[in-house]
Structures are given as C-alpha cells and as structure tokens.
Write a protein that binds this DNA or RNA. Structure first.
Length: 570
DNA sequence: TCCGTGCTCCC
DNA sequence: CAAGGGAGCACGGAG
C-alpha cells in the first residue's frame, strides 16, 4: 500500500532527505526496541519514519546510520515545519534522548482526536481506530508486537512502519477540518503546545529520599501492629479489617448497626465505641502504609527518581491525570511530601494559584461582590465567614474561616445542604446540621447573587456539551447534570490556564537550570540550582499571574512560589 | 485472571 | 432539586 525507501547508509540518507525538505508538513513515527521498548530510559529507537505527500515513506534505520547521519536528521526535524505524530509525547521523549529537541510545530493526531471527543465514554483514540473512522482504512497492528531488534527486519515490519507513518498526513487533514467545524482549533493548539513541557516533566522525574521513606514505612508498620493488637482484644475471631463485608458483619454482631464502613459513617459513632475508633485508626494507617510501600517500588534504582506518566486529556474537564506513580494523590502530610526531594545542590520551587477556582467562578459569573472582594485583595474565606456569622471580618476565628472555606468550595460544585454537611465534615472536620448548612447556603447566595444567577442559568441548560474560558469543549453522553454544568467551566478553565503556563515554561526556562518535575492541577513544581532559585521563583510566579490575567479580565490572579528543599513546605 | 464494588488519597 | 474531577488499593465473585 505505502511505498517506502529503507535507508541504512549515510549517503542514501543525505540524498533522500533533500527531496523531503520542501515539504511544509511531514508525518513522523518511530519504532522502538530494547529492554522496554515503551520506556525512553530502557528502550531505544530502531526506525524513524518520515512521510510526506506524494513520495515514498523514508524509513531510517537508526541502528545503521552514523552520528553524522543522525545530525542530518536532527537538522531536518528541527526546521520550522509542522511535524505530525500520533501520541507525540512518546516519540518526543525518545527523540530528546537522541539530542533531538522538538518544541514547536507539532500536530498530534491522538490529542486532536481527544480534544474532539473529550468527555465521551469510549473515545477510541488509537491510530488504528482513527484511521478506520476517518480514512476508512483497516490497519493491521500485528507487527507492532514483533521483534524490532532483529536484523534484518522483515519486509512485513518495514511495510508496517511505512503505513503507520503514511496515514498521519491524511488523518491530520480530516482532524483539522473537524477541529475547525467544532471551533476547537485553539484548544488543540494549546494541547500541542503543552506537549514539550509534559515530555520534560516525564523525562526529568521526581527525586525520592528512600531512607526517609523506609523510616516512614517502618514507623507505620509498627503502628499498624500496635493497632491490630488492640483490635484483637475487641475482635477475637479471625477478621480481615480490610474487608468492608467482614467489618460490617463483625460490628453488626456487636449490635453496632451501620450501613457502610466508610470514614464518614464510622466517625459519627467512634466516640461511643473504642473498637470503632481503632478501626478508623487502622484504616488510616493501612492507607498510608499502602503509599509507603508503593512509592519505593516506583523509584528507579539508578537515579532514585520516580518517572510518572501524565495523560494530557485524562479528565473530562481537560485536567491532567497521572499514573504509575500517581503524584497527584500523594498524602498531603509533611511525612510523605518530605520524601520528595531535589538532587544535591538543587532546590524545589513550588508554585500554586491562590483560590483559582473561586476567582474563575467570580469572573465567569461576573458576581459583583466576589469581583470587588478580590479587587480589594480581601480574603474571601474570611469575608464569607463574616457573612454567614454576622460578625465583622476582624472577629472571624480560624474555625469560622474553615467552615466558610467548605462553603465557598462546596458552592462551586453546586452542592445542596446535605452535600455540604458531608463535605464540611469529611474535608474540614466542621460539624454542621442540615439546618445550619441550609442557612449558610441561603446567606451565601443572597450575598453572591451574581454567582447564583449564573449557576441557575448555566445549570438549567438542556445540553450535551459545556465550554471553558479557553473554549475547550466537554461532551456528555447524556444530557449534562446541573452540577456538572456548574462545575465544568470552572475546573476546565483552570486546566486551560495551567496548560497555557506549562506551554510557556520550556521557552521561559531555556538557558536556566530549571526543570519542570511535577504538576498537580493548580500547582507546578520546578527543580533548579539553588543559586538560581530566587530568579526562577519570580519567573514562574510572574508567568502564572500573567497567563491567569489573560483569561481573567476583571478578577486579579495571585500565584505564590516558594523555595524549599522538599515538597513539604517549610 | 478479570472486573465491579467499596473505600480513600489528591485538587 | 443538585458533591465536580481523577487513580488505585483490597476484596470477593465470576470465568
């Protein structure tokens, strides 16, 4: 189907590549081999395929050409022509390890299709599915699993490699047209421009202090044993405390009737039953122990770093998700965060936005009171606390502020009174009656009536899609729920802003020691040389605020950056 | 071995 | 009227 030329010699490479140099758009793909062909630290490139219009695909055998030949390819790829990949992140990581650093002019068919289908249950974003859907071509992916280290490669392998690259250009055309139709070109562009930052982040990894972690695990294991000893006095039978079923039954036999063993429910009756307190303690330790065991398993022994995997469109709202290891769910306790550290001589710059979601809600809803409050530089949590208590801002206690915080965030999700009671208790240890919650909500919306009106207007829409400030679209399989319509523009806009910041960082930090190492929704973590930290902290904070203000016209944006020797703030 | 359920960690 | 978005563990039943 697709013609190709198989290049194994420098001379052929130089001659052939000239013919491809007029093209303004090229399709690029690689095949990898080695210990772990999917991991850029353990695998290596075997083939690099380049596809252009109306010419055979050029297949470069990376193991056969010299460093000089690779230099020719590097110069060719680093020219300002559009490079079309499918899941560019993968290829860019391998290419970066070969000294080829592609930062611009990237089109990713995987992300483009993802942007078009964001929110859908089964988006089917594999090259195979996309090619079948958009080009009506059936790809045979059998060779993908073949041995790419063999020599010589078979004709089938070369043909497979050629076809994979050859479909990229026509696929891009179809996807571009769809992006245009759906008014999603800007969103797709943002996604493409975010790739280099994600590539850097994944390649850099996050340092882990294994000794500290081992100590933490040791302590937790001892605590668990002690806890189990106490529990056995209450439960002589052989019971697995990790089994909700067994737990429910054992408690039932003691006359403790509950419908679920979740923390929320157990904590209600814990003051009355010592065994319930112990079960809660056990749950807490067990959860932490899970992390303390899991983290070291994910650390690369040769570098003492964790290399996580980020999905740019992991969440329906546009947020990143993170796996293997999921850095976005590390317990927010000093003992754990202290285990994430920079290399010797380096420090971390940890930056996050201040109350970004509420600011976005204020901007989108045009709520007068909120906008005014932020423009004055007020503490919105305190302000809300004063509002619901009827006291002046100066009289607001820490506890009142915490309760107001729950209210402020809860209202962004479109919570009702019952929801707020649960949320305030489980997240902030604030005990409310449903009556109190109702009154708070009423007072809240009386004050912030602009937000209320926006929520009613937005949430009542009978629609299957929702857009963000960056015009990102989220699709719903069914008609969207009120709470989703109220929340998606806020969470989604926040992710637009974060991605915009990420997209600038490789350029901004070019020539400095700064390395992006992690990103947790409204937080960016940079590792850099200690001597540069002050400068980099300012650069990052300014970038975050500047970008934020491009999206938020009326509400000021505040970002904070601190310099620290571990993820736990000092 | 796979997968749904229940639960808990994060923002 | 209205709890948003994730990942991942252990369990326990199905295959």
């Amino acid at each position: 189907m697709a013609n190709y030329i198989y290049v194994t010699k420098d001379e052929t490479l130089k001659k052939s590549i000239e013919k491809y140099s007029d093209s303004e758009v090229i399709g690029v793909d690689i095949e990898t081999m080695g210990k772990d062909p999917l991991c850029p630290r353990k695998g290596e490139i075997r083939l690099l395929q380049i596809a252009v219009e109306k010419s055979p695909v050029m297949i470069v055998d990376w193991t056969k050409i010299s460093d000089e030949g690779k230099q020719v390819v590097k110069e060719f790829l680093e020219r300002p022509t559009v490079k079309v990949f499918h899941n560019a992140k993968f290829d860019l990581k391998f290419l970066f390890n070969e000294g080829i650093n592609l930062q611009e002019y990237i089109f990713d068919t995987y992300l483009a299709a993802g942007v078009l289908t964001l929110g859908r249950k089964n988006p089917k974003l594999s090259l195979e599915s996309l090619v079948e859907k958009h080009l009506k071509i059936k790809l045979d992916k059998e060779e993908q699993k073949s041995n790419w280290a063999r020599d010589p490669l078979t004709d089938e392998q070369l043909k497979y490699a050629a076809i994979d690259a050859s479909v990229l250009l026509p696929l891009r055309q179809k996807l571009t047209a769809e992006l245009e139709n759906s008014d999603l070109k800007e969103t797709a562009k943002l996604e493409f421009e975010t790739i280099p930052a994600i590539v850097q982040m994944e390649l850099n990894g996050v340092g882990v202090d294994k000794e500290k972690l081992a100590l933490l695990k040791e302590n937790l294991q001892q605590e668990k044993e002690a806890c189990l000893d106490s529990l056995r006095a209450h439960f002589p039978q052989d019971i697995n405390f990790n089994s909700p079923n067994q737990l429910l039954q054992a408690l039932g036999e003691k006359g403790i009737k509950i419908t679920s063993t979740k923390h929320e429910e157990l904590s209600q009756i814990a003051p009355r039953y010592e065994e319930v307190s112990l079960i809660l303690k056990h749950k807490e330790i067990e959860k932490q122990l899970q992390f303390a065991k899991k983290i070291p398993e994910c650390v690369d022994v040769s570098t003492s770093k964790i290399y996580s995997n980020y999905f740019q469109l992991g969440a329906a709202t546009g947020r990143l998700s993170c796996t293997d290891f999921n850095l976005q769910q590390v317990p927010n306790r000093r003992e754990f965060r202290d285990c994430f550290v920079p290399d010797k001589g380096n420090v971390l710059v940890v930056a996050d936005y201040s109350q970004m979601q509420i600011r976005i809600a204020a901007e989108i809803s045009k709520d007068y009171e909120m906008i005014e409050a932020y423009q004055r530089g007020d503490d919105l949590h305190k302000l809300t606390a004063s509002l619901i208590s009827g006291k002046s801002v100066d009289e607001v206690t820490k506890e009142m502020r915490t309760a107001a915080k729950a209210l402020n965030f809860g209202m962004l999700f479109g919570m009702g009174a019952a929801g707020l009671v649960k949320y305030a208790w489980s997240s902030y240890n604030v005990k409310l009656t449903e009556q109190e919650a109702s009154e708070f909500i009423e007072k809240f919306f009386k004050k912030y009536s602009g937000l209320k009106h926006w929520q009613k207007k937005e949430g009542r829409k009978k629609t299957k899609e929702s857009r963000t400030l960056g015009n990102r679209r989220r699709l719903f399989d069914e008609e969207a729920r009120y709470t989703q319509l109220v929340n998606n523009p806020i969470q989604g806009s926040e992710s637009d802003i974060l991605k915009k910041v990420l997209s600038f960082l490789p350029t901004i930090f070019n020539g400095t020691s700064a390395k992006i190492i992690a990103c947790v929704h409204d937080e960016i973590i940079i590792e850099c040389e200690e001597a540069e930290a002050e400068k980099i902290a300012v650069m990052l904070q300014v970038a975050m605020e500047k970008v934020g203000e491009k999206y938020l016209k009326e509400v000021p944006v505040v970002a904070e950056a601190i310099i620290t020797t571990s993820w736990a703030e000092k």
